[in-house]
């Protein structure tokens, strides 16, 4: 059966590989994960995402229960419905994970991001940045004669809009903390 010396292998068209990936619509989900606050737990979560090729749009983590040593990780990720289901199942099977909540699926939720934004400039641009900050309810946390640093909390979209308006006005530095989120209503998750 050996096809004797067929010569060099024909060149192959590999475009199908990328077509497999974006065949289905990607959705963005916000997932809250309650974990033991122990060494390596964040590496486990991040390693899971990188090792299996999942997206992380943002990730925040901090201890929320100092007595029980529990931390809450908020992850904003995107993928097809099947991938999102996988992500949650994979997270849930990590041994130090107590609970996984898909806030996007479980009902209305609030999501907030925090950012520090520095604008440098003088004259009209400087004043204009202050005016925009006022409209967006950003606070000045540091000012010099040639700069402002604003503090701002809001939805990801609101932060994006604010930052875009500041861009032509001498934006020099941004620090964003990533989203934290919680279900609306009286129930805890």
């Amino acid at each position: 059966m050996r096809a004797a010396a067929r010569g060099a292998a024909p060149s192959r068209d590999l475009r199908w590989v990328s077509s497999l990936v974006d065949r289905e619509a990607l959705r963005r989900h916000t997932i809250a994960v309650l974990v033991d606050n122990e060494a390596g737990v964040l590496a486990r979560v991040i390693g899971l995402f990188s090792g299996r090729g999942y997206n992380i749009e943002s990730l925040t983590v901090a201890e929320v229960d100092p007595v029980e040593h529990l931390s809450r990780i908020t992850i904003v990720t995107s993928g097809t419905a099947m991938i999102i289901e996988q992500i949650k199942a994979q997270l849930a099977r990590l041994v130090p994970v107590h609970q996984v909540n898909d806030l996007t699926l479980e009902g209305p939720f609030v999501s907030r991001e925090f950012a520090l934004i520095k604008v440098a400039g003088k004259g009209e641009a400087r004043v204009e940045s202050l005016r925009i900050a006022d409209i967006f309810r950003a606070r000045v946390v540091d000012s010099t004669t040639s700069s402002f640093t604003f503090e701002m909390t809001g939805s990801t979209e609101k932060l994006d809009a604010f930052i875009n308006l500041l861009r032509p006005l001498g934006l020099v530095e941004i620090a964003r903390a990533g989203a934290v989120a919680m279900a609306r209503g009286h129930k805890g998750s």
Binding site: Q86, A89, Q90, A92
Partner: peptide, 11 residues
């Protein structure tokens, strides 16, 4: 027994 095995490759 592993929920992550379900609907991973095949729905």
């Amino acid at each position: 027994i592993d929920p992550s095995s379900i609907n991973k490759n095949v729905a």
